[in-house]
Amino acid sequence: MELTTTRFGVGLPGWVAEEIARVEPALPDVEARMRVAHRLARRNHREGTGGPFAAVVSDAATGEVLSVGVNLVLASGLSGMHAEVVALCLAQAGAGTWDLGGAGRPPVELAVNWRPCAMCYGAVLWSGVARLVIAGEGDEVEHLTGFDEGPMRPDWKEQLAARGVDVRTDVLRDEALDTFREYGERSDVVVYNGGGRGRGPETQGS
């Protein structure tokens, strides 16, 4: 047999560069970094490139932004292209290593506008980040948007802590909820859960 597809690739939409051009190279605190994630998440769904999710990878000590990511499932046609995965992969590509917490490297922070889903939880575990900063946790994102975040274990924060990942939550939580609410109230959104369990504009109100 002959494989017809042997490689794939993704890139950030052009509008992301426009947003980041207005951001300082180093952001002094977690709130500043979360504000960038919120801005990117809002614009991502408004641009139609993916869901209302974004992530920022930075040097935890200096606040230097190393990479950003937005959800690119719709833009790429790839279910794995969640914001955390995109941001971490870009940071790893820039660093030339799969382990962002390797010997001699500064501690790395990942800021996301909500708790990771089941898939991105695993990505955080194996990435080498030292700190995870999230706007909030809980099932609000599922109720407001209809997304299936997967079977997260109740002790997920403890499991991260056991692997050296510090978790800080409730950073600009209300801004995240406003973005999710806006997404969920749109009539033209696509909720891309697998197995035919999503919804698109043609099924709104059904």
Rank of each mutant, 00 (worst) to 15 (best):
F8D: 11
L12V: 11
L12C: 14
P13R: 02
E19T: 03
E19V: 03
I20H: 03
A21Y: 09
V23H: 06
V23Y: 02
P25V: 14
E31A: 15
R33I: 02
M34A: 08
V36I: 14
A37W: 00
L40C: 08
L40A: 06
F53K: 02
V56P: 00
D59H: 12
G63V: 07
G63D: 09
G63L: 08
E64T: 15
L66W: 06
S67Q: 04
G69C: 08
L72C: 01
L78P: 00
G96M: 07
G96V: 06
W98V: 14
L100R: 01
L100F: 10
G102C: 12
R105N: 06
L110C: 09
N113E: 04
W114L: 10
W114F: 13
A118V: 12
M119T: 14
M119K: 14
Y121W: 15
G122F: 09
V124N: 03
S127C: 03
I134R: 01
D139G: 07
H143M: 04
G146F: 07
F147N: 05
E149G: 07
G150D: 12
G150C: 11
D155P: 00
Q159P: 01
Q159N: 09
A162C: 07
A176R: 00
L177C: 08
Y183W: 10
G184S: 09
E185G: 13
V191I: 14
G200C: 10
P201V: 12
Q204D: 07
G205I: 15
